[in-house]
């Protein structure tokens, strides 16, 4: 099939970007979307032009590296599918596709379709962990977890940190990402001791990074390749409010993490 691609090109963080149009012929429906871009890049390189920079690694939908917006939809039109697993049979001959990077103040564009998502790591640094040193735990089966709760924790833990939630959100909020990690740990007994401090610190870091507020449009849930649900945002909100209204830290207690 033949495609027209309108791709955002930007040399670096401080450069101004613009759309460039490319036409590509001979695209097979069996190609993955990224393989189609590989073909374009091989062509551009052979012509002495710079290939389009895009992020990718595992190409099997789990590392979370890939992702850009195709015709207004993060990871493209197929639900619960990262762009590396999206195949060209989702499109038809003659389609015009507009490829844009994730757009958010907290995700500055590094080059073309590559953005800087280090804000996610900094949110995790504020409490997306259980403070247990290597070697200290008890036997694993000494902690019983109801299957139902464990399954819900796993649903939340399935987040791959790709950033599609931010990209799809009309407010560029990272509430789904943050809520998923808070929920994953809040649903497990191991996560209880630090539950309230975690919600407080992670949510406040989320705001500091410049992500927007959640208006519960639900776009993030629809864009999430792993099916993380809005209920995780609700749990985060509840935990945050509890941390502020009901939880009492000892006066003068150290607030240092780690």
């Amino acid at each position: 099939m033949k495609l027209t691609l309108e791709i955002w090109r930007q040399a670096n963080k401080s450069a101004a970007g613009a759309f460039e149009t490319y036409s590509l012929e001979g695209v097979s429906e069996h190609m993955s979307f990224l393989e189609m871009l590989d073909v374009l890049n091989e062509k551009l390189t052979s012509e002495g032009k710079e290939p389009v920079a895009f992020e990718h690694d595992c190409r099997e939908g789990i590392c979370g590296a890939c992702g850009f917006v195709i015709n207004g939809r993060p990871h493209g039109p197929q639900p619960k599918t990262t762009v590396c697993q999206l195949h060209m049979r989702s499109f038809k001959d003659g389609d015009r596709l507009v490829l844009e990077p994730w757009r958010a103040a907290a995700f500055p564009v590094i080059k073309d379709l590559v953005v800087d998502r280090s804000a996610f790591d900094r949110i995790i640094q504020k409490g997306g962990f259980i403070s247990v040193n290597t070697g200290s735990p008890q036997d694993a089966n000494a902690i019983l977890v109801a299957k139902n709760e464990s399954d819900k924790a796993m649903d939340a833990a399935a987040c791959i940190g790709c950033g599609a939630c931010v990209a799809s959100c009309p407010n560029a909020s990272a509430s789904l990402f943050t809520g998923a990690k808070i929920s994953h740990l809040a649903l497990l007994p191991q996560g209880q001791p630090e539950r309230w401090k975690r919600a407080e610190a992670m949510l406040e870091q989320h705001d500091l990074e410049g992500f927007g507020p959640c208006s519960q449009h639900g776009e993030c849930e629809a864009a999430c390749p792993k099916g993380i649900t809005l209920s995780n945002i609700a749990r985060m909100n509840g935990d945050y409010l509890f941390s502020q209204l009901a939880y009492s830290p000892r006066v003068g207690a150290s607030t240092e993490g780690g």
């Binding site: 070697g135 694993a140 464990s150």
Partner: peptide, 21 residues
């Protein structure tokens, strides 16, 4: 030890209905 460590970190391993791994 790995299983103990990972469980303590909150790795959501599959569980039986009784709550064991």
């Amino acid at each position: 030890n790995i299983i103990d460590q990972a469980t303590a970190q909150g790795v959501p391993f599959a569980r039986e209905y009784g709550g064991t791994l």
